[in-house]
Every structure is written in C-alpha cells, then in structure tokens.
Design a protein around this nucleic acid. Structure first.
Length: 303
DNA sequence: CGCCAGGTTAGAG
DNA sequence: CTCTAACATGGC
C-alpha cells in the first residue's frame, strides 16, 4: 500500500535525506537511491515503510510537493495509515511554517546565506523521547563519528531487528531492556562509566514511568526541561536537544553545543569560539526560532 | 603525537 | 554562586 503526504513549498526532501545519510553506521533506517526505509512497531507488529520524494507536477491527484509513503511488509487499516502519516509529518516537521523564520533571518549575518543555500531544510525529529535522550547522552563530549559507533553497537546488541529482503531493520532498545543493563554490558562497547550510568539511569526512569513522554508532552518547555534535568546525566544541553528533536519546541536549543560554537566561529572567521553567554545573547534575535537557527548553523559545518 | 569532540557532575573556593 | 578537574577514548 502507498499514499502521498503533501508538503509545504518550503521543504526540500533531498536536503532532509542528506541529514539521514550522515553516518554509514546508522542502523535505525536504511537508504538507497533517494529512498529511505524505516522500521516501526505498531502495537506488537513490525511495520516497514519506505519514503521517497513525490513530485509530479503533471498530476492533479496529488500535490506538487510531497512524500510518497510505501508500506512494504503488511497492510494498514485506516487508523494505522493515519497514524503513520502523522508519524512521517512529525519526523520531517512538515507542519511547521518556515516562512516567518526565513523572513526574520533573511538578512542576518550568521544565518542569511544559510537559509538561502539550504532552503527547505527541516529538523528531522526523533519522535521517541527515550531514544532522543539516550542518543544525546552518547553524543556528550565525544566526536559524532564515535558517537555513531557507540550507537551502532548499542542498537545491534540490545535493540530488536526485523529482516526484510535479506537486510536487517533495527528498532532502538526499549527502556525495560536498558534498565536492566550494567557496566558489565556497556563498558565492553566502549561506553565510559559516565555514559553507562546515564544510559541505564534514563532506562530506569522510563521503565518505572518516573518519566513518560506523554506527561512531558503536556508541559511547557521550562517545566519539561526542569523535569528532565532532575535525571542524573541530563544537563541543559541534553534536555534542550531532546526537547528540540522530540517535541519540536521551536525555542529549545542546546546553547552549550560545540557545533553551534564552531559554526559561529567559522562564519565569522575568527579564532575564538563564542562563549555560552554570547551565544545566548546572539540567539535573542532568533526568539521563537532558536531550534531552527541551531539546525542551520549545524548544517553549515564541514562534513 | 596533541588537540578536540553535538557535556555533566561533584567538589572546592 | 562560580570555577575546575575528572571522565575516557576515538578521530584527524
């Protein structure tokens, strides 16, 4: 079965696909020839779907810009189809109107050129809060390539997989499984003791429902951030990263992020990186769009 | 080899 | 409250 999801004109599928193709170690989706495939669980059923750009301006049966969704391994009923459509819309942040952001920063010193060059680039979300938080912890204080190595080992070892046409499709490890892990499981994957502790702590917080995605989704950004930061290992950077990627708060951004700092340094062509306080001051002019300012700065970084 | 990496915490001052 | 050391190892 397949269907098309309409996308706004400020959407560039290729750029967004580029983000998903960042690391050859990524196991949570596969890509090939302009298409991306991902495994989800609907209830207890594996659902494997494929996305590709849907552009056919000659047709009047679907919009000029859109994403074609094909479900590969099963058939969905109407409720499930609607659920998958919402998932994809959220994944690619299709419901955000970027016009006000572009208008705001079109002449900005840092972002002006970037929003022209990467017009239609959107925040690829991480719809699952647990996955968002653990991935952020893996990325703390190490280079992204190594973070992907850790994630690959973690997902291979503790996630579940579903085979289709000879390829495995992985799902992220569930909190219940992660809560039962220890240093003995994670240090061999080259987690630091700190990452090991933080990962298991987050697993326990979700497994015991001390934290639930549902309860956080009802909070304000400040409330959600405070709640998350009570968990050991989740600081301001991690909380904001997850809130930006999972709940898509447009005003969330990880001010401590070294990628933001380096992007600003490179655009300004200066030797010194800005301080966190300076970044916060700079970002005041992006009020309401801090998450997107962050995205475009990240995109500006070399490879 | 040396410096840096999509930070956070605990402890000192 | 602010500042600093420790974490821990790959990537380049």
């Amino acid at each position: 079965m397949d269907f098309v999801i309409a996308a706004p004109s400020e959407f560039n599928f290729e750029l967004c696909l580029g983000f998903l193709q960042r690391s050859p170690r990524e196991l949570l989706h596969r890509w090939n020839d302009g298409r991306v495939r991902k495994l989800l669980q609907i209830g207890d059923r594996p659902v494997l779907f494929e996305l590709q750009e849907a552009t056919d301006s000659r047709s009047t049966t679907f919009p000029e810009k859109g994403i074609r969704v094909r479900v590969l391994n099963t058939t969905l009923d109407e409720d499930e189809r609607a659920w998958l459509e919402r998932y994809v819309r959220a994944w690619f942040d299709l419901d955000t109107d970027l016009k006000p952001f572009y208008a705001k920063v079109s002449n900005d010193k840092l972002l002006g050129d970037l929003v022209t060059r990467y017009h239609g680039y959107r925040i690829i979300g991480q719809p699952d809060l647990f996955e968002s938080l653990v991935w952020a912890v893996l990325g703390q204080q190490i280079n992204l390539a190594f973070a992907y190595t850790l994630k690959q080992r973690f997902v291979e070892r503790f996630g579940t997989s579903f085979e289709f046409e000879g390829h495995p499709y992985y799902a992220f490890p569930l909190p219940g499984a992660v809560a039962q892990l220890s240093d003995a499981d994670l240090l061999p994957l080259q987690f630091s003791r700190q990452k090991s502790l933080y990962t298991v702590t987050i697993g326990k917080a979700f497994a015991t429902q001390a934290i639930t995605q549902e309860s956080l989704s009802a909070m304000t950004l400040a409330q959600a951030k405070d709640t998350l930061m009570q968990i050991k290992g989740i600081g301001n950077w991690t909380a904001n990263y997850a809130l930006m990627k999972t709940f898509r708060y447009k005003d969330a951004f990880p001010a401590e992020d070294v990628g933001i700092h380096n992007a600003i340094r490179l655009i300004r062509n200066t030797k010194q990186k800005p301080t966190v306080d300076e970044v916060r001051r700079l970002f005041k002019k992006y009020k309401g769009w801090e998450a997107y300012a962050t995205l475009y700065l990240w995109r500006s970084l070399p490879s």
